[in-house]
Amino acid sequence: MLSKSLQKTALDYRFQIASYVILTFYGYFTIGLSLAVLPIFIHEILGFNTIIAGAVIGSQYIMTFFMRAYAGTIVDKKGPKPAIIVSMICFMLTGILLWAAFYTSASPLLSISLLAASRLLTGCGEGMVGASPVNWAILRVGDQHTSTAISYNGISNYSSMAIGAPLGVILSQHLGNWSIAAFTILVGLIGLISTINKKALYSLSTEVRNSFFSVLKIVSPFGIGLALAGIGFGTISTFITLYYNYKGWENAAICITCFSTMFVLGRFLLTGSINKIGGVKIALYSMIIESVGLLMISFAPSPLLTIIGASITGLGFSMVFPALGVEAVKRASSANKGAALGAYGLFIDISLGVSGPLVGLVAKQFGMNFIFPFSLFLVLLGVMVCFILIRSKAKS
């Protein structure tokens, strides 16, 4: 009877966490809708090169970088609800600008300017929603469930893109690009209504809040490992459609779906391993698996093997964020949890923001065949960072 009671309690906590991180799903679903469509639109319809395409798409993550600090401060002082309300409004405005960009495609400079503005608004929305639902969940269920909350938040994140990316392609092909914009507005509205109807929660800690940059310094060793691991995902999400076009293959969105599906599966199956084995060790094993996936993509002679490589990459990358995130958040006081998660999240924003123009430059200078070997090299540097963290912990 006691065992059943404990199982029921654990299930209740998971449902409570899910009821908050569904807000992450709404936010990232709007991002996923245009993920596989925009690179082709910018490169083939508007006629801009891969560096411009990567820079425009990557600008989202630059804005996210700047908004994370602000969002962390709001979460620690006023709770997560205000931050998420702002994010959903940003996603709705993104949809409006997307519609305008698609409508003005006959004027490439105007269209690309509207797209750039839409990506900045998307970045603002992502920055505000990124760590806010998981903080809301932790406030509801307690710090002891941090790893589960972070993992479930990632499941919402990447499952939304697994669904959103191919759906965006289908909408574009059968209804036109305007439908992606309309769907973005609709989902943002659903997220806004859901957020408004939830009870606000606040941190009751009386501890002194540290400056954001002091918290950033604390979490940075773990964030650097995350940033290097994120290059693999950044390359797949931004360039897989162009890579498929270069190879003469079709259905590139399947790669994003398989990556995201295996990512979600990894989160479901391996979340409990963090507390048993240790966050840094799990991150190390995960990056090695991610490296194997990127190696397969680099030399895959067919779409099928590329899809398998993307799936392995997704499985490997799945546990990096929560594994290193748990270790990072442990080092922050309870009054700085929001800032710690926000500061830690900055590193994935840096990774995804830099990967667009950087990998685009590699593609332009050396060719599309070199983008995944280059990403593999950076992920292997992340493996080395984990080795250093493990050794430094052993010495202390």
Rank of each mutant, 00 (worst) to 15 (best):
1 M>T: 10
2 L>H: 12
8 K>A: 15
10 A>E: 15
10 A>G: 00
11 L>Q: 13
12 D>S: 15
15 F>G: 00
23 L>C: 11
27 G>M: 13
27 G>H: 02
30 T>E: 05
32 G>M: 15
44 E>C: 01
46 L>H: 05
55 A>Y: 01
59 S>M: 14
60 Q>L: 14
61 Y>G: 01
63 M>L: 09
66 F>V: 12
70 Y>K: 11
77 K>Y: 07
77 K>H: 11
78 K>N: 11
81 K>D: 09
84 I>C: 12
88 M>T: 06
91 F>E: 07
91 F>Y: 13
92 M>K: 02
92 M>V: 11
93 L>T: 14
96 I>K: 04
97 L>S: 06
97 L>P: 04
101 A>V: 09
104 T>D: 12
105 S>N: 08
106 A>L: 12
106 A>N: 14
107 S>P: 00
118 S>H: 08
119 R>I: 09
127 G>L: 09
129 V>C: 13
129 V>H: 04
132 S>T: 02
132 S>P: 11
135 N>E: 08
136 W>G: 03
139 L>M: 13
143 D>C: 00
144 Q>M: 10
146 T>W: 04
147 S>R: 05
148 T>D: 13
157 N>L: 15
157 N>F: 01
158 Y>L: 04
161 M>W: 04
161 M>I: 15
163 I>P: 02
173 Q>V: 11
178 W>T: 14
183 F>W: 09
185 I>V: 15
187 V>Y: 03
190 I>Q: 08
195 T>G: 15
200 A>Y: 00
209 R>V: 01
209 R>K: 14
212 F>K: 03
215 V>K: 01
217 K>M: 02
219 V>K: 06
231 I>Q: 12
235 T>N: 10
241 T>K: 12
241 T>H: 12
244 Y>N: 03
244 Y>P: 04
247 K>C: 11
257 T>W: 06
259 F>D: 02
269 L>G: 05
273 S>G: 01
274 I>H: 06
278 G>N: 11
280 V>P: 00
285 Y>Q: 02
288 I>R: 00
288 I>P: 01
300 A>S: 15
301 P>M: 03
308 I>A: 05
313 T>W: 12
315 L>F: 07
323 A>F: 14
324 L>W: 00
325 G>A: 01
333 S>I: 13
335 A>C: 09
338 G>I: 03
338 G>Y: 05
346 L>R: 00
346 L>I: 10
348 I>D: 08
349 D>C: 15
353 G>C: 05
354 V>M: 15
364 K>L: 04
365 Q>H: 12
370 F>M: 15
371 I>R: 10
372 F>Q: 05
380 L>A: 02
387 F>K: 11
396 S>K: 08
